[in-house]
Amino acid sequence: MIEVQDLTKRYGEIAAVKGLTFKVEPGRIWGLLGPNGAGKTTTMRILTGYLPATAGRARVAGHDVFDEPEAVKRDIGYLPEVVPLYQDMTVAGYLGFVAEIKQVAKARRKEAVDRAIVSSGLKDVRRRLIRNVSRGFKQRVGIAQALINDPRVLILDEPTIGLDPAQIMEIRELIRGLRGERTILLSTHILPEVTQVCDGVVIINEGELKACGSLDELADSFERTDGVVLRLRRSGAGEADLFRGVPGVEKVSVDGSELRIEWARGRDHRDDVARLALDKGLGLREMRSLAGIEDLYMNIVSGRSAQ
């Protein structure tokens, strides 16, 4: 549904995107990750036809972005980084205008506006001026605007930025609810969001592709070890030695008040570790998986691959 090949964008001498190639299968939600300035927004702007690329090809919703920009623009929904809102319009008036310029047939326009309002939870504010609604609602209006033409492909640039935690949860829920019929590419800074919402990720840094795949695939190819982080009543060198004795455990290190216990990927010693902690009465307080998205992301972005 989204296919990008050797995409390059140069601003004069500076290359914002260098030879990017990736693919998002239909019906999937993919995250586009990378530090600030990595080229996420530029990539999305090219995919939506806002910016032309210097080189390369991109196909979105079955159309070539450069040969048939109008067809692509008709079939996608796009939430830019800065939500494009006319502050002096009412929520319903604004969505009606977007429906018009997105060429939703006149007979279906009212229905399209109503549907977007319901699915984005905007019923209570539909008659309010956009300037008078809260930030969370503005963000929802942005998402409603992207959904108005019932697009097959949705491109969302940081959909949860600037929202409070409760609003973030709501927006995530909303995006998850769109899974299935639509292909979604979203960019974000918040890594847990990726594990909660996305089926896979594209990680870019300095305009270059660093990794692409489902989270499990990435963990398999970028991490040699798997393991757990343990928080005990007391986590010191003595406790670390105890765990080194567990068969299969390769490495135990003390990390502040936590123990980091690693073993070869593909094996699972979580039960053994937990049993030891309980048998010895070490006071198990917390145990969590080591290969979190944060570690994975840091490894990939900093260029450290499997050691």
């Binding site: 702007r45 806002y50 494009p84 977007v98 310029i101 997105k102 060429q103």
Partner: peptide
């Protein structure tokens, strides 16, 4: 200034 040009340019308007 308001960033709404991005909406116009990404809709099927020439």
């Amino acid at each position: 200034k308001a960033g709404t040009d991005e909406l116009l340019y990404t809709s099927p308007l020439t």
